[in-house]
């Protein structure tokens, strides 16, 4: 389950950031991941997974790993 979510997250991030994204990618090590793109990512994740994140969650979603964790929390 976690792997499937992670794969989808990587796909979404690659599409929006238009660069190669891996499991360790984050805002810090990906130059195109600015605040404007960040909200674009949140919108795409909400559309894809049918979720609505709280502001607290959004603030934590700064890497593939933390995004995956927050999605899993919502799904469970």
């Amino acid at each position: 389950m976690s792997n499937q979510i992670e794969k989808k997250v990587i796909d979404i991030l690659s599409t929006i950031l238009k660069t190669d994204i891996g499991v360790d990618s984050s805002k810090i090590n990906t130059s195109s991941w600015d605040s404007l793109k960040n909200i674009e990512i949140i919108f795409a994740l909400e559309d894809t997974f049918g979720l609505s994140f709280s502001i607290g969650q959004i603030e934590k979603m700064i890497s593939v790993k933390t995004i995956t964790v927050e999605i899993e929390k919502n799904e469970t």
């Binding site: 979404i12 599409t15 929006i16 674009e40 919108f43 795409a44 559309d47 894809t48």
Partner: peptide
């Protein structure tokens, strides 16, 4: 409209 698809 699918926002993610528009990005492609």
């Amino acid at each position: 409209v699918d926002r993610l698809q528009l990005n492609k």
